[in-house]
C-alpha cells in the first residue's frame, strides 16, 4: 500500500468542521422540534379528524414517504425560487426537512395512538375525566411514551440526512466539508473525519434523547417499565 495518509492538513481546518457541526445541529434541532409538533397534530387529525381532513393528511403522508428527500428539497427550494420566492438557504432547508419529517412522525405517532386499547379510554371516561383530559392523559401521552424509541431513531436519521441539503447549498457539516476537500484535495481523509464526527454526534444525540425521555415520562421512570 503506497498511499500516504495526511490527516494533519485536513484537521488544520477544524474551525470549519466545528462551524459545520453547529449548522447541522441547528438545522436538526429546529426541524425536529417543528416536525414533532406538526407530526403530532397530523396524527391527531388523521386518527380523529373528519373524513376530508383524514384523507388529505393521508395523501400528504403517502406522497412524502414514497418520494426521496432530495427530490422534495429540489422541488421546494428551486421551485420556490423559480417563481420569485427567495429565502435564506437555511430557512428553505429547514422547511424542506420539516415537511419531510412531519410525515414520518405522523405515521409513528398515529400507530401509538391506535395502540391504546379502547377500554383505557372508557375507563378514563368512567373516572369522570373530561374528553380533553382523556385525550391528553389517557391517549396522547401514553401513546408518545410507547413510540418514543421509534421517534428517537427517526430523529437521529433526520440529523444524518440533513447532509443531503448540502446539495442545495447549506453549509452544514457535509456541505462545508466539500470546501475543505477543495482546499486540501484530501477527499478520503475528509470523509473519514466526517464519519467519526457524525458517529460521535449520533451517539451523543441518542444519549440526549434517552435522558430527555427519562425526564419527560415521569410515570415510566417511577414504574421502571412501559405500560
Amino acid at each position: 500500500m503506497s498511499y500516504q495518509f495526511d490527516f494533519a492538513s485536513v484537521l488544520e481546518y477544524w474551525p470549519m468542521f466545528l462551524q459545520g457541526v453547529k449548522t447541522t445541529l441547528v438545522m436538526s434541532f429546529w426541524s425536529t422540534l417543528a416536525g414533532f409538533i406538526m407530526g403530532v397534530l397530523c396524527a391527531i387529525a388523521r386518527s380523529s379528524g373528519g373524513p376530508w381532513l383524514r384523507k388529505s393528511v393521508g395523501a400528504y403522508v403517502e406522497i412524502i414517504r414514497n418520494t426521496p428527500l432530495i427530490i422534495q428539497s429540489y422541488f421546494l427550494i428551486f421551485g420556490l425560487s423559480s417563481v420569485g420566492l427567495t429565502m435564506p438557504i437555511l430557512v428553505g432547508a429547514i422547511l424542506a426537512l420539516v415537511i419531510n419529517i412531519t410525515a414520518y412522525t405522523c405515521e409513528i405517532v398515529r400507530a401509538g395512538i391506535e395502540s391504546v386499547p379502547r377500554s383505557q379510554r372508557e375507563a378514563g371516561e368512567c373516572l369522570g375525566l373530561s374528553p380533553l383530559q382523556v385525550y391528553w392523559h389517557v391517549i396522547l401521552v401514553p401513546a408518545l411514551e410507547r413510540v418514543y424509541p421509534a421517534l428517537t431513531s427517526q430523529f437521529i436519521l433526520l440529523m444524518l440526512v440533513t447532509s443531503v441539503l448540502s446539495a442545495v447549498g447549506t453549509e452544514d457539516l457535509f456541505g462545508i466539508s466539500g470546501n475543505i476537500q477543495a482546499l486540501t484535495f484530501r477527499n478520503f481523509e475528509v470523509f473519514l473525519v466526517l464519519w467519526v464526527v457524525y458517529l460521535a454526534m449520533s451517539f451523543l444525540v441518542r444519549a440526549a434523547f434517552t435522558l430527555a425521555g427519562k425526564v419527560m415520562f415521569v410515570r415510566k421512570r417511577r414504574l421502571g417499565t412501559l405500560l
Binding site: 498511499y3 437521529i156 448540502s166 457535509f174 478520503f188 470523509f191 457524525y198 458517529l199 449520533s202
Partner: peptide, 23 residues
C-alpha cells in the same frame, strides 16, 4: 450501530474515494 449512525452520503464518499488508497 456504526453503520446506522453514519450518513449514507459519508458512506458513499468512503466507498468512492476509498479504493484509491489500494491503488
Amino acid at each position: 450501530n456504526i453503520i446506522q449512525g453514519t450518513p449514507l452520503l459519508v458512506l458513499m464518499g468512503v466507498c468512492f474515494y476509498g479504493p484509491s488508497i489500494l491503488g
